[in-house]
Amino acid sequence: MTGADAHTLARRDRRFGYLLTAPGLAALMLVITFPLLFALFTSFYDYTLLNPRHDDFIGGENYLEAWEEEYLAGSFWVTLKFVLASVVIEFVIGFSVALALHAVNRFKTVYYLILLAPLLINPVVVGLLWRMLLHAELGIANYVIGLFGISRVNWLGDIGVAFWTVVLVDIWHQVSFMAILLLAGLAALPREPYEAARMDGASAFRCFLHITLPLMRPVIMVALLLRLIFAIKTFDIIFIMTKGGPGTSTDLVSYFIYRAAFFGLDIGRASAMSVGLLVIVLALTTYLFRYMRSLR
């Protein structure tokens, strides 16, 4: 086969490839690219639900307003706290569980099933479930701690408690993701360095420090970044459990934007804020992909 023939063949293959992916790409355009561009476009207009028309171009004013919005800054702060708290605690618990399960030989499947169960539940259902369990008057949580003589906690209504309640529910829901990802990493580690360390007389702690951690670094990074990206976008459990309250104590950015759009009816400003959030998530995702590519 000559070079020219191979060239034509490659081109024909590529054209066929486009043909096959076209329906999928068209659907994606419709449900992702179009809304994305629409939001970007709208963010430059004074577009409200009272006047849903692109007739008042205001340039970067929506962005400027959002930037100066005090409540948005507060919401960012809550989000940062939420993301850090849940991801760090999930990592610590997830890694401990992964290490423990890695050492277990019997009933592994049973543990896996138990671990996977929360992940299989829809986030809205998780929110509803916990809202009932944690109900201040009727919830089973307060009943159980009451048996031990501990006074009732207003899990979702107390301004100091609600934030941590939401963090805990998020951990309950997402920790298995971390554990399973890390467990897969542990299972893929080579056995020999540990044996070399045993011959060298290293303790279990030193093995962990000098072998497990450095070898697990790529998996840990990917797990943390993935969870970080997901956590920043958290919306469902807030929507179901607290609606950002009490006060603004659980008002995550995604919920703040939702309120601006559907309670404030100011679609233009909400669009500007979502574009901002998108840029942050996109930056993290780009970093994640760069990092994963550098591993190869």
Binding site: E192, E195, A196, D200, A202, H210, P214, L215
Partner: peptide, 27 residues
Amino acid sequence: ADRDLAVVFQNYALYPHMTVSGNLSFG
């Protein structure tokens, strides 16, 4: 560790984040 034997493994089994010198001196 107390048998005073040293093993050389097929897959080398070096400590990944230590330098060569660190690998040699660890034991």
